[in-house]
Computed example of a mutant assay.
Amino acid sequence: MFDIAPSELLLVAFVALIVIGPKDLPKALRVVGYWVGKARGVARQFRQGFDSMVREAELEEMEKRWAAENERIMREHPASDSDASVEPVATAPDDGTQPAVMVERPQVVEAEAHPVPVDEPHADHPKPDVAPS
């Protein structure tokens, strides 16, 4: 950004020493350092705000693309009776809140009866020998 050679920096330091004086030079450097830190903080906040605005704009653009792609897919593959377990896609409410997440309904399947009673050992898993205590 700034191209300051070491010789130029030495010249500025020498002029500051003569103009300000050796007694007040540390105080002046502290004030300059304080204001440089403030300027860096303002620049950092500006950059973070700008980055967040760009990120939000990119997210909005991606959401529009995803919605268009979803509409295209839904047109190509219309819902049939076999897809009755899938609920329709929710759109974002007008109040600015996030839409509810829609998922497929779980399919409940009856459990099979256990072929081996629990108290009898199975051939693959015999009961361990336990010493009496």
Rank of each mutant, 00 (worst) to 15 (best):
F2K: 13
F2V: 15
F2W: 05
D3L: 15
I4R: 14
I4V: 15
A5G: 15
A5R: 14
S7R: 13
S7Q: 14
E8K: 13
E8L: 04
E8W: 02
L11S: 03
L11V: 09
F14R: 11
V15F: 00
V15R: 11
A16S: 07
A16N: 10
L17Y: 03
V19F: 04
I20N: 11
G21I: 01
P22Y: 00
D24V: 03
D24W: 01
D24H: 10
D24L: 09
L25R: 05
P26M: 07
P26L: 04
A28Y: 14
A28D: 13
A28G: 10
L29W: 01
L29Q: 11
R30M: 14
R30V: 15
R30N: 13
R30E: 13
V31R: 13
V32N: 07
V36N: 14
G37C: 07
G37N: 06
G37V: 05
K38Y: 12
R40A: 15
R40V: 10
R40L: 08
G41N: 04
G41H: 05
A43Y: 03
A43S: 12
R44T: 08
F46V: 03
R47C: 03
R47E: 06
D51T: 07
S52L: 09
V54H: 05
V54N: 03
V54Q: 03
E56K: 09
E58Y: 10
L59R: 08
L59D: 10
E60M: 12
E60Y: 11
M62C: 13
E63W: 02
K64I: 11
R65V: 06
R65T: 06
R65G: 04
W66G: 07
A67I: 03
A68N: 06
E69Q: 12
N70E: 14
E71P: 09
E71S: 11
I73H: 11
I73E: 14
I73S: 05
P78D: 06
P78G: 07
A79E: 04
A79F: 01
S80R: 08
D81A: 14
D81T: 06
S82P: 03
D83E: 06
A84I: 01
V86H: 12
V86W: 12
V86Q: 11
P88N: 02
V89E: 01
T91C: 10
A92F: 04
A92I: 11
P93V: 06
D94G: 11
G96H: 05
T97W: 00
T97A: 06
Q98A: 13
P99C: 08
V103C: 10
E104L: 00
E104A: 15
R105N: 04
P106H: 04
Q107V: 14
Q107C: 07
V108G: 03
E110H: 15
E110W: 05
A111L: 14
E112W: 05
A113Q: 03
H114F: 04
H114R: 09
P117W: 02
E120W: 02
E120V: 02
P121M: 01
H122A: 13
D124T: 08
H125Q: 02
P126Y: 00
P126H: 00
K127L: 13
P128M: 04
D129K: 14
V130S: 03
A131S: 12
A131N: 05
A131L: 07
A131Y: 10
P132I: 05
P132K: 10
